[in-house]
Amino acid sequence: MNATAKILAAALLAAAAPALAAGDAEVGKKKSTPCQACHGANGMSVSPEFPNLAGQHQEYLMAVLRHYKNGKRKNVIMQGQVKELTERDIADLAAWFSSQQGLNVKY
């Protein structure tokens, strides 16, 4: 591997890092199957008791999932769901639901 290739590889890694943090909506869609039972395939919940997720801020969804995971926020159903989620899963799921159309900033 020559110097140019090494530089190129480093540049690619650097470019990929933010993408990892941002999450991949398409991957999140595939991972969202268990979520859909309550929150709907389109992110609009099947019951008014559950929150709609479609279009919610990605960073908010990530914060909430982490809160369920670390116990800051308590909900029997959600705590069971998030137990096995990695940071990558959280980013992907949040990217997927935030990319849907639904919620809005209402003034």
Partner: peptide, 27 residues
């Protein structure tokens, strides 16, 4: 807070306040 585009929490963590428009009333 909830009516301002891009508004974020300040403490103890920083993240956007949730969108409420169109959320389920019961929730």
């Amino acid at each position: 807070c909830h009516g301002i585009q891009g508004w974020k929490t300040a403490f103890p963590e920083v993240y956007p306040v949730p969108k409420l428009g169109g959320q389920n009333r019961a929730y």
